[in-house]
Design a protein around this nucleic acid. Structure first.
Lengths: 191, 191
DNA sequence: GTCTATATATAGATAGAC
DNA sequence: GTCTATCTATATATAGAC
């Protein structure tokens, strides 16, 4: 859990995630990271045996961040939790039209190692479970309509988010994602 | 318009699109295509000066297919048109969990040539315009609720489709996309 | 239209010195 | 922990023969 063991390693993961969200998994190399860090690419292999290893560490790093975030928003109302999610992804779109790291990895999913693929799916399920729980909670507190199916709505929400980031990038308009998610919220509320 | 001028060229484009939808733009090379075609990669440069050229031809080829498809469904009711769209993308998911070619290209958008980027956006807008028109038509014929905002719904629809394909791949479940789009249709209908 | 041969660049990875 | 040096594989692309 103590992943702050080394500054270079943490910074490499931060950079790798940024590249992943900007040019995809196949779009960056150890060379890019090394140049940005001001070290040689061979040095990076001290921290990550292989690119697959880097990918794995990257997802774990992102996952740990999500778990911390989930703790922070745990006391918010379901509606505010959902709003907090919108803000997280809006920040991606506003930051050079980044897409979701998991969405980016999905494109290359077939060429990833079995282990990394498994990790990606595991994290995806973790996020989905969180959404489903949040929606269920909102039904109970009457914040959301009693007619919604939490699992179905969670899938629509996740798809809209992934696709919304893609469309924001295509149109060079970060507002797109926000409008789409606001629209989905409105549709859910109209049930 | 006469793009059937050569069998090898057409087959190369078909293969390239398949690769794009499966492993992304950076995930395949002239070598892959040449091997599949049973020719040498140098021969492919006879048809496509560069990979960027191939990408451009690929989008144009896909775009031409969309225009033919739009003509074929032109006489259907708006609701059936939407259903026809669902079928097109469902076939992607059912075919080895392919994603949308435009969604795949969006991931690599930043490293594409200005020309190709422009082409991708142009085609995206063409698809969006078609959707908006179809939704407007359905409002007029009372098939869709008079409360929907065609442009907002078109964006939600496109995002759900892009994201739905990604989620289908992640879960190895082509049913996901269908459920998501059915859910969106239901939400729209509930307005 | 397809081939061989080749050029050039880059990617992922390792060995071993400091 | 970072370096130099090196290996092997692959990618894009071109020249020129058949």
């Amino acid at each position: 859990m103590n992943d702050l063991e080394n500054k270079t390693k943490t910074e490499a993961l931060r950079l790798a995630r940024s590249y992943l969200q900007t040019v995809g998994y196949n779009g960056f190399s150890f060379q890019h990271l090394a140049d940005d860090l001001g070290i040689k690419k061979a040095s990076l292999h001290y921290y990550f045996k292989s690119k697959d290893d880097l990918g794995l560490a990257l997802v774990e790093y992102y996952q740990a961040g999500f778990e911390r975030w989930a703790m922070q928003v745990a006391e918010l109302t379901p509606k505010k939790k959902l709003q907090a999610v919108v803000e997280v992804f809006s920040r991606f779109a506003e930051d050079d039209f980044k897409v979701c790291p998991m969405g980016a990895l999905s494109i290359d999913l077939k060429v990833l190692s079995k282990k990394l693929k498994h990790k990606v799916l595991e994290f995806h399920n973790m996020q989905r479970d969180w959404l489903v729980e949040t929606l269920k909670q909102g039904k109970k507190t009457k914040e959301f309509s009693s007619h919604i199916d939490p699992e179905a709505v969670a899938d629509i929400w996740m798809a809209s988010t992934q696709g919304g980031l893609i469309i924001s990038r295509l149109r060079s308009d970060s507002q797109c994602l926000k409008s789409i998610l606001k629209g989905v919220q409105k549709l859910i509320g109209a049930l």
